[in-house]
Structures are given as C-alpha cells and as structure tokens.
Amino acid sequence: MFKIYLTYLKIHIKSLMQYKMSFILTAIGQAFSSMFSLLAIYFLFEKFGDIQGYTFEDVLICFVISYLGFSISECFFRGFDNFSSIISNAEFDRILVRPIGIILQVLGTKIEFVKIGRAILAIVVFIALFYYCPYLLSVDKIITMFFMIIGTVVIFSSLHILKAGLTFFTIQSLELMNIFTDGGRDLAQYPLNIYKKWVLNFFTFVLPLSMVNYYPLLYVIEKSNNILYVFAPFTSLLFILPCYLVWKLGVKKYQSVGS
C-alpha cells in the first residue's frame, strides 16, 4: 500500500518538474500570503505590546505550528479538500472499481506541493525562534512541539475527510466547512484563551484544536508544568473516528451522478 502511495508521489513530482518555473513562482506566492499573516501579528504587537501575558515569541510558536500543520495537511490531503470535483465528474466511480483502498486513491488524486511554500516561511521562523529563545532547546519541549505539529496535521486532515464525507450528501462543495479549516488555522495563530470562553470550549470538546495547540503550548512556554499537556495532542487521534464514520456512511450511500 505504501509502495503505491510512493508511486503516486513520484508521478506528482514528475509532472511538477515539467513546469518548474510556474511551481517556484506559485510557491513564492503562497509564502507571500503567510508573510502577510506574520506581518499582521508583528504590527499588532508593535502597537499594543503583550496580549494577556503572551509575548510575541509565544504567539509565534502558535503561528508556526498552526501554519506548518495546516500546510502539510493541505498538501497531502488536497484530494479530499477538492472532493466535490471527484464526485461531480464521476471520477469516484472509477476509484470504486479498482482493487486498492479508496482513501489511498483519493489521496493520490492530488498532492499539492505548492502549499509547501506556506510551510517554508513557517520553518524559517521556527529556526529563528530557536535562536532567539534558547530555552526552547530542550528535549521535552522539542518533543512537545513535534507532537503539536503532528496533532495539527491529524486534525486538519480529519476535517478534510469530514468535508469530503459530507460532500456525498450535498454533492456540491461545502464552503461552510472552510469556517473550521481556514478559520481554525487563523484562530490558532494565537493561544485560544485570548478569545471568549466559549471559543476555547468549542475547540476543546467539539473540535479538539486546543489539545494540539493551546494546552501543549502552555507547557512549552513554561506557563504550566503539567506533564499531561505534553501528551494532549494524542487526543486528536480521537477526532479521526467521527470524521471517518461520516466518510464511511457517505461511501455507503454513494450514488453515481453520471458523467
């Protein structure tokens, strides 16, 4: 199974290399857009100073992890994000008749490496953070941040699968889901408790974004010593279940729309 995915990867890279210049320019464009998000944070701190006890560096950790996780998930799970087109052009019928896993094939339909452009800036900021905040260079903190990134990828990928699953019922693309994907990414640029209490509650008990972004952050920036927070990102795995269930129900209910 893994071998097939590697083949998909190779094909996508090959097709990408046919248009090298276009790839580079679009990736720069993506990096540009995240640069402005970063600049917005900088401007706000420049004008107002710390926010509820969080420094600029604290918020940067949040920003970097949220953006990195989101871009990785957008790069590899783009097939699910664009699932409405797979349904409306009956590509899904073809997927169903092939003797390999459905999820694997949908993953393989689209891998958007340009989204990595957004991640590049995040990585640069990450490295700068280690330089300016040497206290981050400890094993427990690096492990925590690693868990945070993986958890963020899991959550956004699950959301993409959920969006695709719901597409079976609506046929049309569900722009409303962007509130949770893009909205979640933008909200999580800051520690979630700077918003109202209900926001934090929603993103803890309904969509466990705070488990990968807020609680472990408290440990990383030494606002909490609770060792449990290090492992909080693992709860994101629970979020896969309901999303996968909706997807499964959708596949079961699927009726071809013709081509």
Partner: peptide, 30 residues
C-alpha cells in the same frame, strides 16, 4: 446559496477578528 454560505463565513470571521482586536485594545493603554 453561495451568498448564504458567504454570510455564515463572514460572521465567523467577524466574531474572530472582533475578539482578537478587542483583546489587544483592552490589554493595552495605547
């Protein structure tokens, strides 16, 4: 229908920005 989805999105972002900016403003004496 697209407009309806747009309105919902606009509301979500509106609330988010308001919470963010007012926290910044109320936290500082600028």
């Amino acid at each position: 229908v697209a407009a309806l989805a747009g309105i919902a999105t606009q509301f979500a972002w509106g609330f988010m920005y308001i919470m963010l900016f007012t926290t910044f403003i109320n936290n500082s004496d600028t």
